[in-house]
Amino acid sequence: MWHLEPSLTDPDTVYAGVEDAALFKSTDGGVSWSELSALRGHSTGSKWAPGAGGLCLHTILIDPENQDRLYVAISAAGAFRSDDGGTTWKPITKGLHSKYLPDPTAEVGHCVHRIAMHPSRPQTLFMQKHWDVMRSDDRGESWQKISGNLPTDFGFVIDVHAHEPETIFIVPIKSDSEHYPLDGKLQVFRSRTGGNEWQPMTKGLPQKDCYVNVLREAMDVDSLDKCGVYFGTTGGQVYASTDGGESWNAIVRDLPPVVSIEVQTI
């Protein structure tokens, strides 16, 4: 079970994304689960193949303006959207390019690592793909590359500032075979222009001898006045910024390897 996505309106309703690539829903607080089987039964299903992490359904997004609109991402099937609560699905991969595929622009097979959405602008999606950082402004119908000046555009996490829908955060990772930061320097890259123009955020983060990874579920933001940004590492650190990414502190340093971070503003 890779991802849990509670309903935006009902605490007893929750979606669950599992390996292998199935989506489930519970309406009784997790006591019983039913598969939304049209996803796995999609006509492209026979072409899906697992990424290195397995055939995992790791991202579920609910459109706050229309809660029957759901997005899921699967490594390495790609990304899919439903406009009818999960009854039917369509691949949303136009514009993605994956050089490791026999057909680099195939409808399915892209190793999507994470998709993020700002609730005030649900038509816009940001994606960290295996390689490439992408955005869509039409609910996934088409994607544009926004890697811009990034030193490497491999990575796992991507998230959006709580109050600035064009401010996004990623943690670049060296490559698909070397899952740690470039040059041993842990850097969050922030774009305030919705991509393409990126600035490294380094204050408070180790700038030598750092070889941790930041896994796809391990970044989130709070919604306080000055947006807090949080991420966890496979080295057991949880870093927090209380100034929108300008500076960072480790709020705990020695946990087991961190898999996921979720932040509640209470």
Binding site: M1, A49, P50, A52, G53, L55, L101, D176, H179
Partner: peptide
């Protein structure tokens, strides 16, 4: 978490797995 069986694939995703990792999506990133 009971999955639906589809006629075209005897055991759903198991059938896909046996075809190997055509995506070559890096090394372990679990």
């Amino acid at each position: 978490f009971s999955t639906t069986a589809f006629p075209a694939r005897t055991s759903g995703t198991t059938a896909r797995r046996t075809r190997g990792n055509s995506s070559a999506c890096g090394i372990s990133s679990r």
